[in-house]
Structure formats: structure tokens, C-alpha cells
Amino acid sequence: MRELICIVCPRGCRLKINDKMMVTGNYCKRGETYARNEITKPMRMITSTVVIESKILDRLPVCTDKPIPKEQIFAVMEAINQVVVKAPIKIHDVIIENVLNLGVNIIATRTVEI
């Protein structure tokens, strides 16, 4: 039996899910789906920064363009930490393509001109 807080809407139902994937405590169907997904394959978006060589900024904010498996969070962070980019960078430029072969790109979320 696992306990979860549903994050689909701000109500934050306290859910319980057992080994047979039976969900209780949910106010709506979306909570049921969330609990099942969260147990089997939890996914997360990562936002971070990379080192940028620029006259005006030291760090470029980046984001995964799709969620990645939760257990890969720190591995993806390690990949992000190795990167050094040079200005100019345009918002949504791909910074790391297909990071760790997960089919997910790391993209810039800010334009840095110089």
C-alpha cells in the first residue's frame, strides 16, 4: 500500500494505491490515473542552468522539452553540468540533443545575444 499526494489539481487529494493498482481517496478519475502512472513510471520535467560564455550572463536557463523518468534526474543533471555554451543563444535552441538517449532534448529557455 502506498500513499501519494495527487498533483493534478490544487485540491491535493491524499491517495492510497495497493499492489493490485486499486486507488482510493481520489475525488475524480484523473487522480486514479495519476496514481497508477506515478507508481509504474513516474516522469518529471527538469529545469536547470548551463554555463554560458557571454558578456552579460554567467548561466543560461534550460529545460527538458519532455518529461524524463524520475530515476534519471541526477544522471540528466550530470549531463547538463558538463555543458558550456557560447552566446549568442536563441530561446529554444537545442543545448543537448537526445540527452542520455531518452528521446528528450535540453533546450534554452532564454535568448542571450552577446
Binding site: L4, I5, C6, I7, P10, R11, G12, R44
Partner: peptide
């Protein structure tokens, strides 16, 4: 905080 943030 939002429960989404408590979890994530």
C-alpha cells in the same frame, strides 16, 4: 505551498 511542489 502547492501540493505539486510538496511532491516534486
Amino acid at each position: 505551498g502547492l501540493s505539486r511542489n510538496i511532491v516534486q
